[in-house]
Design a protein around this nucleic acid. Structure first.
Lengths: 352, 352
DNA sequence: CTGAAAGCGCTTACAG
DNA sequence: CTGAAAGCGCTTACAG
């Protein structure tokens, strides 16, 4: 147990309020007195007790808004778990978190949500942005005009005044896949890419990272595709069939996005499951199962929970302690898993 | 902001103390009253405010002891960081953590540390045990006689009354390495193992897991070794040279323990760095560097910080909330990294 | 510029 | 079995 403000007040012969003013630079105090108190506090090794601080400040009620897109998808469900965890922590520290879940992707709903939060009097917002000029303008409006700091997560919106971004470095994710694939196929042969949507920047960046790194590090690998499957198993299966027919000597497939089951089913049908090396993304759906049975060789994942948790906590720390985020780009870790490193007691998101 | 005990008291027409007794099963309350209060609390959606709770309880001063072995090693330095983080958190919640760092491995020092902590009045101990009957007996004595719960970390001590263990599943770690190596060398050829000490159970388990999984999954791989290098670069180099001379067609090396630099230097000398596939453990020393330059292909790591952090927090949660640990064996995650998934802004331990 | 007091939500002796 | 009160360490109007 540490030194308290009361002990310092006694040692300095002043009141507790005066110590508070000195230590927290609140002004309205004679500079000499403040200096003397600060020195005494230093000598006594004073460390403010966060508990007292938080409890006392809980009158202020820090309110943070969170806007989630595509809330119905499994991935966002995991992100949501992280948000809920942060919410519990903020609650227990006397703050409040309000959440808007937007189904699918909607620009107008997003703007409505932002406006709603402003009316609710939030002091900060964490949100998944959408690639739209209107959203961009609104983010800047909130930050500059209303002084409401904004953290983006999952997708970034670089050319705005947002405080920082929390999410995956998709390009690097693709490179990691390339490094794995290069070793899996022994550095030569044909490797295909199946992606989800050509319009999705995260997925495109994975493809880009994968392609460019293969070209640099494994120039003897020939790239096939990308084919697009719109995250649909049936379409993914069709794409796989097409690729297999055109490239009977195919050695590997990298999937940037969902549709893994469809691919694996088709590989099985052609007797190629396990021999065509496969790398997929995210610890969800049937992916662990497919890895256990040998159809998927590596899974690359992001910590979805952290993507929900951190943005909220970054804002809370900012508002509560004045603590600035560590950097503008907070990339979440890129996990590589094989069948031996599947967590045993995992939550719905497959992260331990 | 949630419902408070005061609001419940008003709603129920009783005092706050009575609500406290009802909600925390403290007895000395008429069962019907207790039941009614609990129902009201439920209806109002009461969640205890941890802040008020902690501040109030900080009078009790929960004291937790931590005993660290081989504290001078880089790995334990990282574990130490986790301990420090836990200590800060416990401090800020009104508790105390006292720490004994034991240099090298000493049975008598460990017992002395345990006795010291008991005299200091700790309510629980987190410790790295040593494989000695005396330690085993002492752990049981503390748990059974003195009612001081003990959590082991880093190494386990299975047949004792310790509450739980936090650390790596070394056998599984070896299997993960086998899965990687099998793919790296294309499922056939000669693969060597270099370990640290034959007497260290963690290292032996890695070797065991590696060997057994290769036999099952890649029967065409021929195992060489294990050689022992006592975590010394020079000896590791000699072992490597011996292996290379006896097996000019060597395709891979798995190192369970330190001495990586020595191995890589020798591989370079023979012009085999990069072509002999290498898998090593832990994100420390020069390992990331060796991976960047292509000498090491995969690193398998454990979250050393968590190994320090969790044991302390498990005990704190137990003493503070009566929260039981989730399971007896809390295996930390097994991370696989290639050169593309090296965290950018890492602390000394190489974990983000 | 400084102090005395009330309050944040909970727990805990102490009376009764 | 129940209540009234003090206290944990801090912040914040309110007086002066």
């Amino acid at each position: 147990m540490g030194v308290t403000i009361r002990q310092i007040a006694e040692a300095a012969g002043v009141s507790r309020g005066t110590v508070d003013r000195a230590l927290n630079n609140r002004g309205r105090i004679k500079p000499e007195v403040a200096a003397r108190i600060r020195q005494i506090a230093e000598e006594m090794g004073y460390k403010p007790n966060q508990l007292g601080r938080a409890l006392s400040m809980s009158k202020n009620n820090i309110k943070i808004g969170v806007i989630l897109q595509a809330a119905e998808t499994p991935f966002m469900q995991c992100v949501l778990e992280g948000i809920e965890r942060a919410k519990e922590e903020v609650d227990s520290l006397g703050g409040t978190v309000i959440l808007c879940k937007i189904p699918h992707i909607s620009c107008s709903d997003t703007i409505d949500a932002m406006e709603y939060m402003r009316k609710e009097g939030v002091s900060a917002i964490a949100m998944v942005p959408i690639e739209e000029e209107e959203i961009k303008a609104h983010i800047n409006l909130f930050v500059e005009e209303y002084q409401i700091p904004i953290v983006t997560f999952n997708s970034d919106m670089e050319d705005t005044r947002r405080l920082c971004f929390v999410g995956q470095n998709a390009f690097q994710c693709g490179r990691a896949a390339a490094g794995l694939m290069g070793e899996l196929v022994g550095g030569c042969g044909k490797v295909a890419v199946i992606s989800g949507y050509s319009s999705n920047p995260s997925l495109s960046n994975r493809v880009l990272g994968f392609d460019s790194e293969l070209k640099v590090k494994y120039p003897d690998i020939e790239l096939v595709g990308p084919e697009y499957c719109f995250e649909d198993n049936h379409l993914a299966g069709q794409a796989t069939e097409k690729i297999l027919k055109e490239n009977p000597d195919l050695k590997g497939i990298y999937m940037t996005s969902h549709g893994e089951e469809g691919v694996c089913r088709m590989l099985s049908k052609y007797g190629r499951a396990g021999t065509v090396k496969m790398i997929a993304n995210d610890f969800m759906g049937k992916n662990y199962e497919l890895m256990r049975e040998g159809s998927i060789h590596f899974l690359i994942g992001q910590d979805a929970q952290i993507q929900g948790y951190e943005p909220v906590m970054i804002l809370f720390r900012l508002l509560f302690n004045g603590e600035q985020p560590k950097g503008e780009l907070q990339y979440t870790e890129i996990f590589i898993r094989n069948e031996y490193t599947i967590p045993e007691d995992m939550d719905c998101c497959g992260i331990q």
